[in-house]
Design a binder for these strands. Sequence first.
DNA 1: TTGTAAGCGTTATCAA
DNA 2: TTGATAACGCTTACAA
Lengths: 354, 354
Amino acid sequence: MTQKKPTLVSLAESIGVSRQTVSNVLNAPQRVKPATRERVLKAVQESGYRPSAAARQLRTRRSMDLGLRLTPVTDGINGAVQDRFLHALTEAAQDAGYRLTLYSARDDEEEIRHIDELLHVADLDGFVLTGTHAGDPRTAWLQEHAVPFAAFGRPWSRTADPFESAHPWVDIDGAAGTESATGFLLEQGHRRIGFLGWRPDEGLGDDRRAGWRRAMEAAGSCGSLNELSAATDDDVAAGASAVDGLLARGVTALVCASDSLALGAFAQLRAVLPPEVEPAVVGFDDTPVAAAVGLSSVAPPVADAARRIIAVLSHVLAGRPAGEGPHRHQVLKPSLVVRKPYALGRTVPRRQGG
Amino acid sequence: MTQKKPTLVSLAESIGVSRQTVSNVLNAPQRVKPATRERVLKAVQESGYRPSAAARQLRTRRSMDLGLRLTPVTDGINGAVQDRFLHALTEAAQDAGYRLTLYSARDDEEEIRHIDELLHVADLDGFVLTGTHAGDPRTAWLQEHAVPFAAFGRPWSRTADPFESAHPWVDIDGAAGTESATGFLLEQGHRRIGFLGWRPDEGLGDDRRAGWRRAMEAAGSCGSLNELSAATDDDVAAGASAVDGLLARGVTALVCASDSLALGAFAQLRAVLPPEVEPAVVGFDDTPVAAAVGLSSVAPPVADAARRIIAVLSHVLAGRPAGEGPHRHQVLKPSLVVRKPYALGRTVPRRQGG
DNA sequence: TTGTAAGCGTTATCAA
DNA sequence: TTGATAACGCTTACAA
């Protein structure tokens, strides 16, 4: 039943060639005479021989294994993005001949320790970084130690140009996303469109806010833009409680930095507005929650991003020159998913705790 | 900057002992004289030496690596369970000294091919199976090939006793979950409580239906139970469209086999019932969507399950006898999370009795 | 075009 | 208690 696994040697012996010939057939077929090549390949097929990754790794110093940190699911809503990303990344890595090893870390420092450990112990070939932010210690560490990696997220910095960055990265154009969301609301006739986002972060959040601002300014709404913008924590309750202030300033529609915020805002608007007025809210990330409650949302092409990340990273790992191959810095445009809200309820959402 | 990685040999030379002594300090400390042991350990610390997994694996034939399939996120709602499970599993594996390798497969046959491949190539020590079902070809294959594994999900079968199963598994007691959900609705005064589930599957779905049935029978509702039960696909739309038929049969409250179904049913009830009537619906899995919408739901202890799976599996892999150590077959009771619709973020968890 | 020799870093075996 | 020797399965360099 369970057959003993053939090795290069046992296979070579069984067909009367040296183990080197078999290795060549697999790694440098052109060096082997077609006739013997055929014979060897047939034997490989029949025996089900697969080279041992450990042995190969020991010799070549390449593990064909990539590392990815799994961040704790904070909120469950925005966590869905990680889920989709992970899945696409697994498939892309698999297709490219790489395996994916997960590790879990609470913060950047812990992640660095894990990377260091995995580098020593398992000889990982490279890493995929997610959630890059201003002053990210991980990119610095990896570059210092000459570890190949690609980031999902540009290197946020006020001073440096991300397109000059030494490491490859793929990112979503958040600004373009909120810009098109704002454009959509403008088309619907809204003029005082608010933005509900996070506190200034020199990163993701500011980028999304910038897109809204750009669209508003292009539409001629200058001057009072600051008062249409709110900055809070990233959860449903915070989204709900920010709404009243914005309404007081005459806001009739909202672009949000996340689906969590959007959902909170949406629920609150449902509670406050007259029943015949449909709340005009657009979220960000197109999570299952948005789909479930019928919330419009900006949909980042995470699966595409994952594939591109593997493409650049494996290009780098193959030792190919940076000039050819996939672009080392890519910004992907999100799309807008427009939905009609379900009638889920009219109750007032409340802030947890106090 | 980047220091050259020390090896067993270089480390041994640097302190003037044989490489074997260093190896012994690490793997069989009791065989080494305390004095030298100290000396070696100190050198290990200072040099930051870590044994190479590949070399060790080549020698010991153990990879300290476990495999897990990542199933495609079908619906996004129920997928959240996989996310939580994966996270807990990663941490547990990490803590137990194992690494986790992911692979993606569309169906059981493809999974088996991947397992076979990973076994040959990467010498994985074991696998974690999820989503077991009646007539599962994977368990058969793994047993036939003597591959260690543990399943999240009992071996569903009409004939065989799952507790007699040869392989370890951990499962959620779905019936207990729906039973307590039904009990909760009974307490609220409902009498005609419907069940909205999937078509008969000799597995997960039937189990959840059975719990509802048990609670209803215990409450004296015999006879007409079948007409209170509906079976559909597992998505929001199907949940919504099943509602009318159930209402026509006098159902006043619903226990659902998933949050997708529950959400659909809930939305439909909101649309159909008079505004002052709060729909009484309980979902299953306690997904972020349920939390966001304020839907009561049965919460399976997935994180706990993940930890227990790693515990049994690593017990098996350590070659320990089945008699001692963690139980090889474990059924975990879910809890019921009671929410008020749209009381966003405000949850009242209830403990499940007995 | 094919075969031989050496070595990747570790642990198992056994002798000192 | 310690150390020498021999693998584990593979690839690289070089010789035939």
